[in-house]
Amino acid sequence: MTMAATSHDTPVETAAPSTRRQPDRTYWLLAPGVLWMLLFLVAPILMMVYVSFWTQTTFKIEPTLTLKSWITFFSSDTYLGALWTTVRIWLIVLVSTLLVGYPAALFVGLFVKNKTLSTALLVLCVIPFWTSFLIRVLAWRPMLGKEGAINMILMKLGIVTQPIEVLLFSELSVIIGMTQIYCVFMVGPIAFMLGRIDPSVIEAAQDLGASFWRIFRTIILPLSMPGVVVGAIFVSVMVLGEFATSAALSGRKVNLLGNIIVTQVGSLKWAFAAVAGVVLTILMGAVVAALLRVVDLRKEL
C-alpha cells in the first residue's frame, strides 16, 4: 500500500511544473486517476496514521494525540502474537504457492507448445474464482473436517486409525485454504515469463551439452525470476491483508492482523484498528520493497 502511494505521488510532482512550462495537454489524462488515488487512497492512509494517535476510551474516541494505543499494541502478547502469526502464515503460504505453482507454470508456460492450449490451461486455473468465497468455505469443511472426505478415505485405507483433527479449524487448514486460493496468482506471472523464453535459447543450451537440471538452474529459473517476484508480490499483499479465510477455517484459533482490525473496528476501537492498520501497511511496504530488490523489474519486463 505504501509503495502504491509513493509511486503515484512521484509522477504528480514531476508532472505539475512541466505542465505550466510547456502546455502538454496529455498530462490531463492523469488527472482522474491522480484525483481518485489522492481522495480514496492517500487521504485515507494519512487519516489512518492520524487516527492511530487519537485517544481511545471504552466508549468514545477523541482527537487528542497520544501514544497510548501504540504502547498497548507493542506491549500486548495478543497483538504481537497476531503479528507473528501473520508473518509466519505469509511465509508458509508464499513458499507453498511457489512449490505448487512453479511446476504448474513450468508445464503451462514452457512445455505446452501450443499457445492457445496454454492460454486455455491458464483460464482453467481461474475456475475456482467462478465460485464465491462462501461456497469454497462450505466445500472445504466436508473435505477437511473430522468426518470429512480426507479422513474417511485415510481411515478406509487403513493409513490412520484415528481421524486427523488438525485438518480443520487449525493453522494447517488456513494454510491449505490460502494456498488453494492464491496459487493462481503465482502461476500466472511465472507462466507468462516462462512463455516469453525463446525455445531456441533452451535448444542452444541443450546443444552446448547442458542437462535439463542444469538448463533449469542456469537459464529457465533466472529468466523466470521476474515472474516469481511479481507472483510473490501478489500473494504477499493478499495474504498479509487476509482475514476471511482464517475466520472461516480456523474456528477463531488463528488470529491474523486482518482479524484484529476486523474485531477492533467491530467494537468501535478505531485507534487500535488504526495502529494495526499502520503496522500492516508498513509490513506490506517492507515486503514489497524487499521483493523488488530481488529483481530489477524495470530492466527485466
Partner: peptide
C-alpha cells in the same frame, strides 16, 4: 543433441 559433438548456431542467435 548434447552428446553429438555438433554445434548449432541459431538464426536468431538464441543468446542467453
Amino acid at each position: 543433441p548434447h552428446e553429438r559433438g555438433i554445434g548449432f548456431v541459431f538464426q536468431n542467435f538464441a543468446l542467453f
